[in-house]
Structures are given as structure tokens and as C-alpha cells.
Design a protein around this nucleic acid. Sequence first.
DNA 1: AGACTTTTAAATGTCAGACAAATAAAATCT
DNA 2: AGATTTTATTTGTCTGACATTTAAAAGTCT
Lengths: 243, 243
Amino acid sequence: MKIDPQKPADLSAQIAQAIRDAIISGQLIVDERLPSEAELAEQFQVSRPTVREALKRLAAQSLIRTQRGATGGAFVNRLSFEDAYSQQITTSTLLLSMNAVRFDTACEARYALERACAPLSAKRRTADQLATMRAEIFRQAQPGLTDEAFCASDVAFHRALVDGADNPVLSYQLAGAVEAMQPLMNMITFTARSREAIIAYHTKITDALEARDAETVDFALVELETYTRQLAQDVAERKRKPA
Amino acid sequence: MKIDPQKPADLSAQIAQAIRDAIISGQLIVDERLPSEAELAEQFQVSRPTVREALKRLAAQSLIRTQRGATGGAFVNRLSFEDAYSQQITTSTLLLSMNAVRFDTACEARYALERACAPLSAKRRTADQLATMRAEIFRQAQPGLTDEAFCASDVAFHRALVDGADNPVLSYQLAGAVEAMQPLMNMITFTARSREAIIAYHTKITDALEARDAETVDFALVELETYTRQLAQDVAERKRKPA
DNA sequence: AGACTTTTAAATGTCAGACAAATAAAATCT
DNA sequence: AGATTTTATTTGTCTGACATTTAAAAGTCT
């Protein structure tokens, strides 16, 4: 069932992989209880701490959950979209920050993905999502807003746009792309005028979405991408030549 | 720097989160060595096994790597696109298999994402990527191919298409969507005729890509999506009514 | 002096055994 | 029967020890 040769790598990693494989292959199904730590230790012929390290690895990936007490133990976790979101966001954020991804590259990816779901959003957006988007636009127009808060609202706006496609798989995939951009966006100082321009695009997008006009949404997204990249380029240049 | 109140949850989870936060916030930078397990145990006022469980959690997310020996220890890992890929694929695969995502939903997401990078691929595809795609098409035409191998080749084909966009962030985001579909696709039996049809679409896509004709690529992708969904629907119906 | 070998020290990997805490089921009592 | 106590099981944590790996330091020989 699950074996474990003592040849190459850490035992805890091997055990984790064995259990992971069992979950992926369907040998272990959702909510099924794993053997107790003592039993697993016996089964794999290792000590309990080693088994625990393996289980913690799986817990970190939300593959299992543990419960204490008499009927407790480790259970195969149903990976929720929520959990998957947050993992994706963490991974994407680190990936971008650790690999010196150029702003243009990330920006291009983000808008390409958003444009992918724009036609679907135009077809399926609910009144609720429109309201969320308008609320975020309103917030973005507040004068006292910090750059960080402005960016956060921007993320929320685009998140609503993506969710409008009513496809959880799409939403999950895009969450990382959009949210991971935020740290990069936060490096931009938004002047009153640039905020005004962005808000205008947001309004255009929302209006078009309300009218279910996919073409205009797409066009506005292209404009917004162009504008955002121009903005970042100006910031970069001003940094290089602080005249 | 990193504190740890003993109130609510597992200590190892808290410690992992504290270190994770330090990495994300940039307090710990790539390739920096963490304190030894003994020092961390001292610092957090816990035992060494508890620290180790925390470190294994981080290792499971590829946030750190460990090295044995005199100058060994735990080091902040540069999250590579490779690592991120495989994590994303694991997560996406489980997400789809555990949440009864409808084939249509996954398929829609996949093709929406692929269409997003089609224009970029048309602009930037290399001769190398074209060659890969033609090689996969050739493989798909081999008569003895199993359904699984056909699907795997299909994945490779689309992977090349996505990589053609020459945007690592896009590639990373899409890898999960495309690969996670494979188990679902594997449930389809591909008749000789359906294979022929799919190969025709693949050829059309590759030709258009070679000609840098984004519009035709997009059109062919839409056709392929429609065809794939029809195929899946037929299979589902045949299963329901096995006349 | 320089190159090779041996020793040593530091770190992770693993183990054994123990106790604490939580939790639900079983047993007991009113 | 219902409420309470006991008990057993399981995870969470600690202590201390040993094994293994690895690089640097020490030592040795030419």
C-alpha cells in the first residue's frame, strides 16, 4: 500500500509523499481518517516524531487536518477554494518578489488573464457584483486615501470583475495573479490625476459590464493596462533621474 | 522580531507563520540562514521537535531548504518557477478532483486562459516551440497510442502554446489549469475519428501560430473548446444510457 | 612549504519514552 | 432517564540521547 525504502532522502519527506500520493490517487478519500500517529509509525517502521513531521508537511498544504481527543486523528481535508486561493496568493507573491519579475511582465500577465474572463463576466455578472465594483470606485475617489488603500481597493474591484465570470476555477487561478501584483503596485505613488484617470477606466468598465458590452470592457482593460504600464515607467524614470 | 503568544493554536503552526511572515515581509532574505533549530527553540521557548515541525511545514511550501553538516541549517529558499509550477499543479488537481468541478467549468476556464495568451504567443512564439507542437501532433497521430498518452501529449502541446507567450508569470498561472484538466480528460475515450478532429485543430492552431495570425488561433481554440465539450457530453450521455 | 589525511565540531535526522491536554464514549450515580 | 464522573484514546509537547553528514581545523608526511 504505502512503502518506503530507506535509501535516499528524509524519511518524513518520503512518508509525506507516500500519503500525498495516496490522496491524489484516490486511495484515501475526503474526510477519511488516517491511522493514528502510533500506527503510522509502526506501519512505516519509524518513530512518532518522524511521522509527525510528515503529517505537518501535509497540513501545511491543507491536505489533512488534525483533531485532538478520543475520536481525533488526521483526516483527509477537502481542499476548499478558499484554502487554494490563499496558498496561490502566498506562492505568487513570493514568486514575484523573489525572482525580480519585471513590472511589465506581471502587468501583462494580469491583464491578459483579466481580459480572458471579461466576456464571461459581461454575460454573467450579477447586480451584486456591479454594486461591489461601484462601491470600490466610490472608495477610490475618497481624497484622504493612502496609496496602499487605493491599491487594495483596486484589487477588490478587479476581484469582483473576475468573480463576475461565475467560474470558480477561473477565479481561483486569477486570484493569485491579481493579488500578487499588489506589492508591485504599492510602489507606485498615485497622484490625484492618475487616480482620476484610473477611476474613469473603472467606471467605463463597470458601465460596459452593466450593459453586457464585452467589447467595450475589453477595450477599456487594454487602455487601463497601457495606462498602468505608462505610470510605472514614469515612476521608474523619475527614480533614475531625480531632477 | 518574532513573538509567539501561547494562547490559541499549535505552537508549530504559530512558529511557522511567524517565520513565513518574516520571509514575506522581507525581514529574511533569499539564501539567508535561519538560526539553528536549537537557537530557534531557545528563542521561541519551545522544544526542538516543535521547531522542527514548524520548519517542515515551511519546507513543504518550498519556503526553506535544509542542509546537514557543519555549515548546514535552514536557508530561505528562492522559490523557483519550477517549484511554483509543481505546487500549483498539485493544488489544482486536488481542487478539481475533490470539489466535483464540472467538466464544462474546468474546460471553460482552461480555454479562456489559453485564449488569453494566444495573441502573445502569435507575436512571440519561437521556431523551437513550433517544432515542439508539431512533434506532439505527430505523436498524437500514432495509431497505437493509449488514451492516457494521447492526453499527455495534448497537455504538452498546449503547454508549448502557453510558453510561446514568453511570459513566465502567465506560464506559471496556466500550468495548473491545463495540467489539472488531464485527469478529467483521461476519462474520455478518444475514438480514431475524434483524435483526427483534434489533430486537425492542433494543426490549424500551429499553422496560424507560424503565420503569426492571432485571430485564426483564437478561432481555432474556440472551435476546439466547443468540440471538446461536445465530446465530453457525448461520453456522459453514453454512460447514462448504455444502450 | 605544500599536499594529503585525520580529527573535530556543528548541524540536521532520528529515536525512545514520558507527560499534558483535549475529547468522546463508557460507566456510574442520583 | 438524565446528569455526572471516569476512562481510554489521540494529538501536542518536552527531555535527552544517538546517528549521520559536512566542512573546517589540526595534524602528518613528503
